[in-house]
Design a protein around this nucleic acid. Structure first.
Lengths: 187, 187
DNA sequence: ACCGGCATGTAACGGGTTACATGATTTT
DNA sequence: AAAATCATGTAACCCGTTACATGCCGGT
């Protein structure tokens, strides 16, 4: 999904400034599944405005740039519908932490444990945050994504705890990877 | 992780051609967590060669380009270790399917169900594939990532099945979102 | 007969990330 | 006193994706 479509999506649920669009994306159930920086949102909103898919009003602020509240137009709604009709691309996950853990044999001693702990901690935070979301009156799609998100985060936290021992074992016993044969000589 | 580091990682476990690097990444437990196309791998391998982090031998093929088998060097191993010492970036997930489902109210009738079914089916395939991997003799990190992957895919498949009804309900009863008040007039 | 697997490479294109510029108010 | 929040925007940069070029062999 390009950032333009992300913006249309957020605006389809109510008016917002560029700043608020970013916040809503980050804080909602979609938070882990989409991402957009200001460097993409502001140019996207300009393009959207040029196409007539959004309109906006400017409100003067003291000491900071004027706030622009954007609203989606009817043609914007249609464009958003068209975007949703395309076949969704396959999920893409980038996990540097898992990549590193995969090569734990190359990590300095004790580092694997740190990376794993940081990984679990990050997802524990996301899980807490997701649990605290208020879904009162939220539409079905929002609830669905929320539920799937919760399941994923719970699964990760649990799986890391359940398998942590695999890495700890390697740290404690670096000389004999597996089995009893091979190099089992008398000291 | 940039593609150069991905290549070093694969080569740290044994020699391979660019083609094989891509396959190993896709087919191993890391399959869903990293990705690299030929358009990035081949240039990356050239850079790696120029830096002296890999060496290679060329083998003539009939009717296709010469096969180049790459091997990591000692300085390559050190560079890889340095890369692994950096703090891992936070996981990034892009899910167009979940984005679409989030806005199921905008989807054509029945489309939400299709997207959801396709989504579950995709993960069922990944799950099958992951279950069939042979981990005999695999190091701890590989097992760990495999186990976490399995948990995630299982969680997604289960969560989608458990929450499918949320979307089905919306399709079947589009006129009255929730509650009993509001527009409950006598026909 | 046609598609997928094998095998490498280049060039253009696209799009997101990062860094910078500006600055008051509120929270820690 | 320092840091985070609010608020927008530009420009350079990086780097990955896509498309193209080439071509044999085995399976359906």
């Amino acid at each position: 999904m390009d950032v333009k479509t992300l913006c249309l999506g957020v605006l389809s649920r109510g008016e917002a400034s560029g700043y608020e669009i970013k916040k809503q994306l980050e804080e909602g159930p979609l938070g882990q599944f989409c991402r957009a920086g200001f460097g993409s949102i502001y140019p996207a909103l300009n393009v959207l405005g040029a196409k007539g898919w959004v309109t906006w009003s400017e409100f003067p602020q003291n000491g900071r740039p004027d706030k622009k509240i954007y609203r989606i137009t009817e043609s914007g709604r249609q464009a958003f519908r068209r975007a949703l009709r395309r076949k969704p691309a396959a999920d893409r996950v980038h996990s540097e932490a898992l990549f590193m853990i995969f090569f734990s044999g190359y990590l300095d001693v004790g580092r694997a444990a740190d990376v794993v702990d940081g990984y679990a901690e990050a997802y524990r935070r996301i899980l807490d945050h997701t649990r605290q979301m208020d879904l009162a009156g939220a539409p079905a799609g929002c609830r669905f994504v929320h539920a799937v998100g919760l399941s994923i985060y719970e699964a990760i936290v649990a799986a890391v705890e359940r398998n942590r021992h695999l890495l700890a074992a390697e740290d404690g016993e670096p000389a004999m990877p597996r089995g009893k044969g091979k190099s089992g000589a008398v000291s």
